[in-house]
């Protein structure tokens, strides 16, 4: 069995008096789709943020491609997130003043690509996800489903190794939610990217290869889909 692409062991993290993670751990292999499931307040999002280098755990290890992630500086972690990871958030978190194509091109521009080339590639992704018609629109001018597909395009445009999706369908109806999940998973598989997905919906978790159940900040059971 190959080395895991990303793994974490013994993660502890508290926010004041609240213990969000209490010894959680996880492994993600290259190309694998993993869903973190659990009730509200179980620590799913906190674990995802630790894996992505957004939060630094109080104790434990996060290792990415053989190197410790949790001990890197903020600047190094920021660089890693820019070059290796992609993100889809529950509310999209698109920049409201930028158009859809500018939002999708953002990760490429951050990596140093020139504007014309970045936006051309962004258009390809918008077309691939069936939202080219909103390329010139701003997030406030799109539907929720359109906005999330633009967010998915933004997450995948730079060819990340890992995509972190935190409740990507939480604000969508079931039809649009499934649409978004199919686009996300299909595109990720095509690129060979791993996906770490946080959701409280079992039908969304079913898109993943494996489910990991969290309760009270601990992993209680891995479930193979």
């Amino acid at each position: 069995m190959s080395e895991p692409l990303l793994h974490a062991t013994g993660l502890h993290l508290a926010f004041g008096q609240t213990r969000a993670l209490d010894g959680a751990g996880i492994e993600v292999r290259a190309g694998e789709m993993v869903a973190l499931v659990g009730s509200s307040g179980s620590g799913k999002s906190t674990l995802l943020h630790c894996l992505a280098g957004i939060l630094r755990p109080d104790s434990g290890e996060v290792v990415y491609r053989g190197a410790r992630l949790d001990t890197l500086s903020e600047e190094a972690r920021s660089r890693l997130r820019r070059d290796e990871f992609g993100f889809v958030f529950q509310f999209g978190s698109l920049v409201p003043e930028l158009t859809a194509v500018e939002n999708v091109a953002l990760p490429l521009r951050l990596a140093g690509a020139r504007r014309r080339g970045a936006e051309a590639k962004a258009r390809e992704w918008l077309e691939r996800l069936g939202v080219l018609d909103v390329a010139a629109k701003r997030p406030g001018e799109m539907s929720g489903g359109q906005g999330q597909r633009v967010a998915v395009a933004r997450a995948l445009v730079a060819g990340p190794r890992v995509v972190f999706a935190d409740e990507p369908t939480g604000a969508l109806d079931s039809f649009n939610g499934e649409l978004v999940m199919e686009e996300l998973m299909g595109a990720a598989r095509a690129q060979g990217a791993s996906v770490v997905l946080v959701t409280h919906e079992t039908r969304i978790a079913a898109y993943a290869d494996r489910e990991i159940v969290l309760r009270d900040g601990r992993v209680t059971s891995p479930v193979v889909s």
Binding site: A52, E75, R79, R81, R82, F85, F89, S93, L94
Partner: peptide
């Protein structure tokens, strides 16, 4: 703050 936080999460300096 949410937009800025998302940008920071994506690695925006």
């Amino acid at each position: 703050y949410r937009v800025h936080a998302a940008l920071t999460a994506m690695g925006t300096p």
